[in-house]
């Protein structure tokens, strides 16, 4: 290897068709780059050694855009976290996503990182995942074979592992607009107040009709969403004890581990504490609205 020989080659397709053709040609030897804030670190430390890096940011079909289309909001794959945070539609209809996006790294990172990249990276601790999950996000995928849509819930398969198949590219994320009044609350525990990876993170959503959902990250192999089938959580007449019991039922789906960011016991305890707080915040927001 000569000093001027690259570790990988780089392509900058301008259409989806070109990008898919490259992906077809290189298969597993290709890595897709959107914001690059996760990928470039892995390229540097050589935990990824692709033949080619395909930069998707010039692909015409996925240029940064957040559009309201009838019943949903579509966020294209090249849209940065900063754009998501600042977008008026996101702020109006999906405020918990704004709060979650605001915790992804520093401003420098959010200026590059994309929402699509955050979910494709499929970190068990992905901070935007809980918000997207409670908002019922779906992921639009394209390949040479055509397009398909998967629910985000099914998109996360395991740590760093998604339902993306060989030759597929995420083109956008879609969020259905609310059908009824609702309130959502994002919450997390970190080791410091500045930029940090979550020890746990979660999002709660309560709908005026009484449906309550929670989504969690950093407490299992993949972010996941659970619904309160009992209806107790949104029931104003339910006791704190009954609510705690219902919450414990939801949290039982988590399988936190111990690592340098926190122990299993602490994570488990914080799941209950922060779930309680998020639920309370949602109910107060609904009442105030």
């Amino acid at each position: 290897m000569l000093p001027d020989s690259p570790l990988f080659s780089y392509a900058r397709p301008s259409t989806l068709e070109e990008a898919l053709a490259l992906l077809e040609r290189y298969g597993e030897g290709a890595n897709l780059l959107a914001g690059g804030t996760d990928l470039v670190v892995e390229l540097r430390n050589r935990s990824r050694r692709p033949e080619i890096v395909i930069d998707l940011k010039r692909v015409a079909e996925i240029q940064p855009a957040i559009t309201l289309t009838g019943r949903s909001l579509t966020i294209t794959a090249a849209t940065s976290m900063t754009d998501v945070q600042e977008n008026e539609h996101v702020r109006a209809h999906f405020p918990a996503l704004v709060d979650a996006a605001a915790t992804v790294g520093s401003i420098q990172i959010r200026n590059r990182a994309t929402l699509a990249g955050n979910i494709c990276h499929a970190s068990p601790a992905a901070d935007t995942a809980p918000a997207l999950l409670v908002y019922d996000a779906t992921v639009n995928l394209t390949s040479a074979r055509g397009t398909r849509t998967v629910k985000l819930e099914g998109f996360f398969v395991g740590p760093r592992h998604t339902a993306l198949q060989m030759g597929e590219i995420v083109t956008s994320i879609e969020l259905p607009l609310p059908r009824e009044r609702r309130a959502a609350q994002f919450a997390r525990i970190t080791r410091r107040r500045g930029v940090d990876l979550a020890t746990i993170s979660l999002c709660c959503m309560v709908e005026a009709g009484g449906r309550t959902r929670f989504a969690y990250a950093a407490v299992g192999p993949r972010p996941f969403v659970v619904a309160d089938e009992s209806g107790v959580l949104a029931d104003p007449s339910a006791s704190d004890g009954a609510k705690d019991e219902a919450l414990r039922g939801l949290i039982a789906h988590a399988s936190p581990i111990s690592d340098v960011r926190g122990s299993r016991e602490y994570r488990a305890a914080m799941l209950l504490v922060m779930s309680r707080r998020a639920l309370r915040a949602c109910i107060e927001k609904l009442r105030a609205a």
Binding site: T37, N111, R112
Partner: peptide, 11 residues
């Protein structure tokens, strides 16, 4: 503002 360590020059 960006972190230049997280970008490729080609970008």
């Amino acid at each position: 503002a960006v972190n230049s360590c997280l970008m490729l020059a080609a970008e």
